[in-house]
């Protein structure tokens, strides 16, 4: 589809129309902008070598790298339960899930690299505390039921957010999201299954499940970002066909899905104000503590320091390994050159 759409967008600068030497930089920019605008109007795709506005590049780089960082930091709360998973089957599923997240981080860093920043630089920014990642991962995974609640609510919210990103205007991002969303849906299902099993288990297990849902519900709703009237970047992202739906729209859809699913689980949402508004045809929820959201975002959450330190430590402890691999690779290249000479 994307390729077909591109064909309806002729006159790409540099491709079909060589810029004349005397036209200068301004003309190049103007042609680029015109091409970019047509791609946006046709809801087609921008690819890495296409001209793009600096702000578009910057926005995408920020969003994709934040997404990658979220996958990497997001491994930690679940890795916390790999060693204690209560059955071997659950252990295998959890290991596979956390491993998938490393894979998602890899695709996303690769997508971000096509915008001109290296993975090393992004990793350095993360470790230096300069880059953000999803606030949700600054909450602790306290019980086994948190593996269920994270899968069901956190991955569920992520899917709502990410499915529309499969159509994002930047090609590498959209394509990475297609693959990621497939795996995320498996992640959500396994979370749902964990909770269902607990809910149908002993009273202590059911209590554990309800407690986890109670703790993760509000943070999961806040994953969609601030309310629309307090989300300054959303409008531009929607104009650029990166974001397709507003934060509140996605949040409302998510609440509607959870309302249905929590009944099947035999659990409740910790929100007495959830209702379907017949006038707006939208699901509504009770007030969220946006002050808490801002606090966690500013670094004052329960696990911010712990999460970054763990990433930093893995990075530092592994430095000698990466140096060894680089040194070995360089020596191999030299050997091949000597052999060829």
């Amino acid at each position: 589809m994307a390729a077909q759409n591109l064909q309806s967008v002729p006159d790409q600068p540099g491709a079909t129309q060589e810029p004349k030497p005397n036209e200068g930089q301004d003309q190049l920019e103007a042609d680029g902008q015109a091409y970019f605008d047509r791609v946006m109007a046709d809801d087609s795709r921008i690819e890495p070598k296409d001209w793009m506005p600096a702000a578009y590049r910057k926005t995408l780089l920020r969003q994709i790298s934040q997404h990658a960082h979220s996958e990497i930091i997001g491994m930690q709360p679940e890795a916390n339960w790999i060693s204690r998973a209560p059955s071997l089957k659950r252990k295998a599923i959890l290991m596979a899930k956390v491993q998938d997240e490393a894979g998602h981080g890899l695709y996303l860093y690769s997508a971000a690299e096509t915008l001109g920043q290296s993975r090393d630089q992004m990793m350095d920014d993360l470790i230096a505390g300069k880059a953000r990642y999803s606030s949700i991962f600054n909450y602790p995974a306290l019980t086994w039921a948190d593996m269920g609640a994270i899968g069901w609510l956190v991955d569920g919210a992520a899917i709502c957010n990410q499915v529309p990103l499969c159509r994002a205007s930047y090609g590498p991002y959209g394509r990475a999201m297609v693959r990621i969303c497939k795996e995320e849906s498996f992640h959500q299902r396994q979370g749902f299954e964990i909770l269902l099993e607990l809910s149908n288990g002993t009273p202590a297990q059911k209590q554990m499940a309800q407690d986890a849902v109670n703790r993760w519900y509000a943070p999961a709703l806040m994953m969609f970002g601030p309310p629309d009237d307090d989300s300054p970047n959303s409008k531009q992202s929607m104009a650029w066909n990166i974001k397709r739906f507003s934060n509140d729209e996605l949040r409302s859809r998510f609440v509607g899905m959870m309302v249905e699913q929590v009944r099947v689980l035999g659990l409740t949402l910790p929100d007495s104000e959830v209702r379907f508004n017949e006038d707006t045809k939208k699901w509504e929820h009770g007030p969220l503590d946006w002050n808490e959201f801002k606090e966690v975002l500013a670094g004052r959450g329960p696990c911010n320091s712990q999460r970054l330190e763990r990433r930093r430590q893995a990075h530092d402890d592994g430095a000698w390994v990466r140096e060894a691999a680089a040194s070995y690779a360089a020596k191999q290249v030299n050997k091949q050159k000597e052999y060829a000479a």
Partner: peptide, 24 residues
């Protein structure tokens, strides 16, 4: 399994995780 999220590079988080999963 302990290496998952602690490996020297992301590729090794994946590789050691894979080996752990095979063994499991």
């Amino acid at each position: 399994g302990h290496w998952i999220s602690r490996a020297p590079e992301l590729e090794e988080d994946v590789a050691l995780g894979n080996i752990a999963l095979d063994q499991l």
